[in-house]
Computed example of a mutant assay.
Amino acid sequence: MTGLLDGRAVVVTGAGRGLGRAYAHDLAAHGARVVVNDVDAAEARTVAGEIGGVASSHDVSDPAQVDALMSTCVGAYGRLDGLVNNAGLYHEALPWEEDPAAIRRVVSVNVLGSLLCQAAAGKVMREQGGGAIVNASSGGMFGFPAVSTYAATKGALAALTYSSALDFESVGVRVNAISPMALTRMTEHALGRDLAPSTSDKPPLAGIEDKPPERIAPLVTFLLSDLADGITGQFFRFDGHRVSVVTTNAFADHPSVVSDQWDVAGLADAFRGPLAAKLQPYGVERRLPPPLRRRIR
């Protein structure tokens, strides 16, 4: 399917290396014309040269530069059919050691950047009558030690996907999110960390050494193609071997206790009683809340 995306124009942010570079290469191999965006201008030019694309060093956290980025795509290719919101900053810090300036920068790139890119690309796609957007979230949003700021930004991208898919559906634009698991410079750093004790015998990053970014790229290409027609508002976890649909039923039959009138004592009884066994594991390592840990012992 080398011509799967023939005639399509796609912007990939954060495409100078790692996953973004792999996405750009795979999209181009399937016929797409790609704008390779990265704040590292040299890396953007290198990747663009490798695939015959257009390089962009626009900063996605700056509204004016985002508009210029989308204009670059339209100016070069006459259209804009796909956006991969991949640009992001990784950040580690314990909550009580956070630096406000670092928080602001991570949120500006990871969240504001994706919002701005989606808004600007969405205007063009709406006028064209269609398109597709892929937002790069992360399994970190489910909980990972010392990355609460980063995790919060990736959770925001999942929420962005669910909500904006509703708005874009009427104008023919599909929006999906992915949680890629691959060996990159970011995950190489995480591999060297001491993780908190896990309730599972399988570490959160087990086997990642054998998962290069290139194995993730086909999912992005698929989601930007007509083969994914009708697939929108979804969140997929992918490690190059297993692809999973992350369930998001907001109206599920959640464990609950009903009372005509609650007070603090009644709530305490409920959480000591029937709700205690229903408390959920948290974090990618599936750590149990203390009440459940005590019961198991």
Rank of each mutant, 00 (worst) to 15 (best):
N135M: 05
A156Y: 02
L267R: 04
M141W: 11
T187Q: 10
R237D: 10
A93N: 11
L19G: 04
D253K: 07
V34N: 05
R237I: 10
L223P: 01
G140L: 05
Y282V: 12
F235H: 15
R45A: 14
E97R: 07
A151C: 04
V66A: 12
E97L: 12
G16K: 12
E214R: 11
R295M: 14
L4S: 09
A277M: 04
T2I: 10
P197E: 10
T2V: 07
R287K: 13
T221E: 08
R174P: 00
N85I: 09
G78S: 02
Y90V: 04
A9W: 04
D59E: 10
V11R: 00
V39Q: 07
A22D: 12
A102G: 05
P213L: 04
V284Q: 14
R193V: 02
K123M: 14
S148A: 13
V246G: 04
L292Q: 15
F168R: 01
V106C: 08
D269K: 10
R45D: 15
G130L: 08
V11N: 03
G18T: 09
D99E: 14
I51W: 01
G113D: 07
L275Y: 11
C73H: 00
L4Q: 09
D59H: 11
G20M: 05
E92P: 00
S71N: 11
D229Q: 08
R185Y: 11
A55N: 03
A159F: 03
T187D: 09
E98A: 06
F235Q: 08
L19A: 01
A68D: 14
V264Y: 05
G31C: 05
L292S: 02
L166W: 05
E188Q: 14
S71R: 06
R8V: 00
A76D: 05
V109N: 03
V173R: 00
L19H: 01
P204Q: 06
R286Q: 15
V264H: 08
V39I: 15
L191K: 13
A64R: 07
G52W: 04
V243A: 09
I51D: 10
G20C: 03
G113R: 01
Y77W: 13
E127R: 02
P95I: 13
A44K: 05
G283T: 10
K154I: 15
D253L: 07
N176C: 12
H189W: 13
L223Q: 03
P203E: 11
P290K: 12
G143M: 09
L94Y: 13
V134I: 14
L205R: 05
T149Q: 01
A121Y: 05
V10E: 04
L5G: 07
A152H: 02
N176H: 03
